[in-house]
Design a protein around this nucleic acid. Sequence first.
DNA 1: AGCGGAAGCG
DNA 2: CGCTTCCGCT
Length: 380
Amino acid sequence: MHCGCTPSSYWLPGLAFPDWAYKAESSPGSRQIQLWHFILELLQKEEFRHVIAWQQGEYGEFVIKDPDEVARLWGRHKCKPQMNYDKLSRALRYYYNKRILHKTKGKRFTYKFNFSKLIFVNYPVWDVRCPPQPVLMGSNVCRSPVVPPGVQREVLQNTFLAHKLLANPLTCRRMIPSLMDYERCLEKKSPSIGRCSPATCLLGPYCHFGLNDGTLYSPSTPTELRSTGFSASTSRSLCSSSPVALQGTSDWPLCPGRLFHRGQSFLSMEERIQTLGQRLPGGSFPAHWLGQPKESLTFLPPPTEIKGQLDICQVASAVKPDPEVELRSLEQDNVFLDFHGKNKVLVGPHGNQSTHSKPIVCTHTTRLPTVSPNWLVKPT
DNA sequence: AGCGGAAGCG
DNA sequence: CGCTTCCGCT
């Protein structure tokens, strides 16, 4: 039905897009890939790197290097031999209003995915009935080609995990045996998940979970991963279904769901989201609460959709230096800038623990716009 | 190159 | 509904 030219599997294990992303067809079970899927698929594949590729360093941005070829491929897929870039680009332009894509102005053939739209919407974090994905970090970091550089770890982790887990918790348990222990922990309503026995936990020493606004990169995190803003855990988890047991360190104890660094506890992602979700109408939240403001603000709802008065929300967030700053700072007396880049902070593995080693945890009161309950909706 | 209206198709 | 086709405009 696809001219015999459609790749049969377009997603790696563990990565799937939600049902609405596939067009329901008359014949049950058959699903038609949509254009943005197709684009993502091409972007995922090494062999099309010369045709279409992620824009280095730009979150969700990609460049169509060979428009004619992309159009040809799409046309082949859709059995539309007359397809060309003019028509394909019209289809892409229809994505603007749906906020699936937008155009990068001034850059030829360059578009940008709105990943918070594509992914978050369908897997709100508070629907994740399983704990955060344990970090499976090893020396052999397997990077998934499907993931664009700069996509927030939480988006990915929650997406992958939520999909898998909501679909089939057993899969999850097979993947991550320690979740059984975690669940038992939850059933007992343990006040502190962090008190789970380290022996039963897989959370590695380099946990990246839930700290998008203050990612805790270990000094040994490869530079390439820092620069992409992409954790080894996520990439690894996409490629391997066998958990890797890791040992904790004194700096990074093994604790699922909660991150400690040198005794300092961080608010987990889930906790933060729950707090926010309860306080925002429709259970939604501004994307920038989940990511680095600069990036995510792009995808905030248009002003017309923000209405009503302001609400007040208290959020405690872990603040850590920018990883690049951290990297540099490690070579310079462990001086960091805080998340806002304003204050210099002394911190680091080699610093004096009593004065230098605490990550900053700040609680700030912020006014949030009251948003329309349906601004986070799937494309129509 | 890029945009978006209009009409049509399955 | 998600494009495809066509096209005038910038």
